[in-house]
Design a protein around this nucleic acid. Structure first.
Lengths: 208, 208
DNA sequence: TAGATTGTTAATCGATTAACAATC
DNA sequence: TAGATTGTTAATCGATTAACAATC
């Protein structure tokens, strides 16, 4: 389903509307705000099971609850973060995840120089303690922010510890068993698209 | 072109191969490494203008140069960053952009409490100085990391200063004139897909 | 030569868009 | 009532996949 990645965007606006005291919102409004066709919004929202009322639209509260439930964001999911380098430390400090049901509960690294340091209130633990921590807490979500070269090794460790979902911020495609899902996050993708469009904006297409 | 966003991935592997002394690489190998069909890789690489040799593949060096040139990553592009909150500070500290032709040359904020502070070697300047800085340096790329509510205002300021490409890390869709391009980067999208797949992995589809 | 790999064309697939009857 | 908006079906579009002759 291609529409799933658009749900957080809707959720964002819905929360604003809720804060402003709006009770209903039409798919048309959601579409305009996100530069989408109204039909796509209606189709996307259908997965939540919420049905709208003609002339009035959708109940804001119901939609929020339904989207959060659909994504499993109603109760915050705890996660571990492996690899506290530049990006790892950055994500540890980022508070925006709270809105999306994610809470990083433990940070791990291999580098002895980093172990014991506190970053944004969380003490960096040695990777050797990952398995114990994961099993004790029942955490199933992991954020992977090690250097490219260590990605597969760290992944194997996480899988072995019991992690079932890996948010992969390395440029490496990692291999996992069937009972584990991964999501690759690559800032370079977006930058590539932007760079390319910027280039063609500045130097328009050559004539045929 | 949907293939553009895959170019950085190829580039990553090509650089590794280059470092290992490999002279040629086949589309098949690139495809396997990235879990793609070989035909897609060949089609993606066609935009660079590099032509391969049957039985041998593509020249690694030529491909690297061609991809970098295609994306404009051969010479590092300078950028300004507006909004030095959690995420902004995080991105300031992230060194991974060097590999992708991006160098954040100036950081700006509205909050007097932040102005003057040094984050990862760059002094935070007041937004009032943005226009002067942008014009003096000729920078055309901007990274937007302000809170959602300030996104449009900060965008207008950047556009007015002369920025032509905006990498938007806020959850807000901003409006820009025709001569400016934007690229929205939303970590929540990837997290939504991961959350959803994780949920269905743990609690498999209900029977029909 | 034989055969792996190329560039490219045609077929398939999935997502987006357009259209419209139903309805509050 | 009139008309805005819904859910949904059919048409369009674009990207992926399959197939294959050309070639080193």
């Amino acid at each position: 389903m291609a529409g799933i990645k658009r749900l957080p965007g809707y959720l964002q606006l819905l929360r604003e509307l809720q804060a402003d005291g709006h009770e209903f919102v039409s798919g048309t409004v959601l579409a305009e705000t996100h530069d989408l066709e109204p039909a796509i919004v209606r189709k996307d929202l259908a997965v939540t099971g919420i049905i709208g009322t003609p002339r009035r639209g959708f109940c804001v509260n119901d939609l929020i609850v339904a989207i959060e439930h659909f994504l499993g964001w109603n109760s915050p999911a705890k996660a571990v973060l492996v690899g506290v380098g530049n990006l790892g430390a950055a994500l540890l400090g980022y508070r925006g995840f709270d809105d999306y049901g994610l809470r990083i509960a433990g940070a791990f690294d291999r580098d002895p120089a980093r172990i014991g340091l506190s970053i944004h209130g969380r003490k960096i633990q040695p990777v050797e303690k990952l398995t114990t921590f994961v099993r004790a807490t029942g955490i199933i979500l992991g954020v992977l922010t090690v250097p490219a070269g260590a990605a597969q090794e760290a992944t194997d460790l996480m899988v072995q510890a019991g992690i079932r979902g890996i948010w992969n911020f390395t440029p490496t495609k990692v291999k996992v068993p069937e009972h584990v899902v991964t999501q690759k996050e690559d800032l370079a993708e977006g930058l590539a698209v932007l760079s390319h469009r910027l280039q063609h904006l500045m130097r328009p297409a050559s004539p045929v």
